[in-house]
Design a protein around this nucleic acid. Sequence first.
DNA 1: GCTTGTACTTGAAACGCATCAAAGGGGCCG
DNA 2: CGGCCCCTTTGATGCGTTTCAAGTACAAGC
Lengths: 370, 370
Amino acid sequence: MAKVKISDVAREAGVSLGTVSNALNHPEKLRPETLKLINETINRLGYLPNQSARQLAGGATKSFGLVLPRLDHGFSLQIASGAHNEARKHGYDLLIANADNDDILEDHYLRYFMGTQMSGVMVQPMASPDWHPVMAKMPVPIVHLDIHCSEPGYYVAADNEAQGRIIAELAIARGAHHIVVVGRAAFMQLTLRVLGIHKALALHPDIKIEVIDAGEWNTAADGYGIGAQIAARPADERPDFVVGLTDVLASGVISALVDKGIAVPGQVRVAGCDGNPLAWSGSVPLTTVAPPGYEIGRKGVQLLMEQIENKAPAKTKHVHIGSAARTVTAVTAIEDINRQELVRPFLLERASTQASSQTDATAINLGAYL
Amino acid sequence: MAKVKISDVAREAGVSLGTVSNALNHPEKLRPETLKLINETINRLGYLPNQSARQLAGGATKSFGLVLPRLDHGFSLQIASGAHNEARKHGYDLLIANADNDDILEDHYLRYFMGTQMSGVMVQPMASPDWHPVMAKMPVPIVHLDIHCSEPGYYVAADNEAQGRIIAELAIARGAHHIVVVGRAAFMQLTLRVLGIHKALALHPDIKIEVIDAGEWNTAADGYGIGAQIAARPADERPDFVVGLTDVLASGVISALVDKGIAVPGQVRVAGCDGNPLAWSGSVPLTTVAPPGYEIGRKGVQLLMEQIENKAPAKTKHVHIGSAARTVTAVTAIEDINRQELVRPFLLERASTQASSQTDATAINLGAYL
DNA sequence: GCTTGTACTTGAAACGCATCAAAGGGGCCG
DNA sequence: CGGCCCCTTTGATGCGTTTCAAGTACAAGC
């Protein structure tokens, strides 16, 4: 079955090659009857435009590429979802590549997308984008997501320090006297969360704070281990508030506490700091500070559009988006996820926003997204 | 910043255009020193091959496209993961498109991929693939995932009837006397699950069975409603075993029962039938029959490879993959998901496999995947 | 010195399409 | 009847590659 090409359609319809091309790209230029004839012929022959040839001849593509480190992290999915919706709104396609936690693959797909005449490319990088100097001088708009970089360029990130601050203020409002922070701050994001917590608590010297390293990977099992250790303490050395630096950790802590007969949130409150639906349990509601993944994806596409539409785009633009705390359970989480939107039924504990500019670039405050 | 093209590299390196192309595609044909010179020039100039031109001129692409109905369903993610790993193993890229539960978008991306000179395309369709007659005669290998179609063509699906049978046998083994099946069998997959349950129970006329429609969308809220209704019954009319046709439903049922003071699994056992990690709760373990999403993705790519490598591939091939029941909690689920593999720490309740062939095509039994 | 062979390298010809200047056709006005 | 303008259609040109037949340089064998 030989592929049918545009010239076949033209011959079959008795028009010229260029007319068929116009039918595809500028239908308004054709007489309605010509258009109809051509469309019928296209369907009859099962013609499918060769995208490669289109892109080669035409230049632009009206599609964006998105490289994600994994597909299984709720946060990445929210990004993908936000980016997808915004892209469709502008009439663009979104193609997603899974870098599978592999630097080399990430680089591979980045190059692939840049070479495919995509109108723009977004990455949620695993490492600092300073590692991709090649990308900097590419003639394709690029936006980094969920990462801070000092280099010139575009990025959109959650305000992780604000997240820490929010969670600390939440603990204070709940009357906490002894806070334990669980997790290893291996990544910049987590470091900033811890920083935010410390800053907020600086005004409350009476509150005791401990930071416990949970092991290299911050897994639920690590959280479970710490939780068990906390449960084993004498009651007066036990914290009344535990913060998991990620929801997965918090979830593990909760499981351990409940297993050991400690009431949550009766005796110990536990909060997460991630907004990762995969970690939300059905029976013990988890309060978490959710970074606005959906908004980050959306804003990423908007920055792409901005670069495309402006002839002389700014060389640098850093956007920080605030977060909101909310209490979630599996049931609400599922509804949330299934609607792929940040919906309202959540109990809004507190919302906070902050914008900051690390360069002379524009900073935008999108505010809390609830 | 003008794009640097292959001719720029050639001129700069003092070789011909074809030689640079060879450096990229057939490095073994070049003298090592020429190769080195060219590679250095490529890096110095930041040259990036134009994929469109490549594909147009070259034909094949060594990449697959995967169209998914949503990104947020655990099952789709498992498919993506399995497909990704298998594709990489063969040196192929995998690009993913999100159809966002929209037929038109699904069709759009399908056409897009077919037109992009992809080596093969996979879809997890929302509706019967019979609706895509155009696709049938495309010169690109295509495999349908997670769906049964009688038409000639390739598909890989979970054996949904076997899933129903497994869950029923599980109930029998647990000594159930009264089983309630919750959910609307709106899709073929669910219908087959119900069928499997009925077939298995046909041998046990003493066991009472009820099927309760949960509302159009089978949401967690629907499950909650049914659960509340069950809880409100007098003890002797209450089932001792509830099957949710999806994990989301089962999760809702559990929440309701627990809320109303019914012990799970003490008074009522609840099982799901979906393997959807997003529905797995932390505190009440859910026993579910998980369709092997990862394996389906893997097998899908294998069928693609088969079509590519055989000059005269079979016109039809239907593969049904068995399932395994397991008991899961949020913590194990997270570990599972994070490793993106089907791992072993699960308690394996029972495993079953079945292969069937609806046509004269080859049927393959991959067996339980645990 | 001539032939044959080997190891690289060359450059022109497609690949399928979008574009755009130019041609064609029809209606209107003078 | 001629001139003009507008709407529609035409087809040659080029997009950046890969491919492959043809070419070059050099070494070995006689």
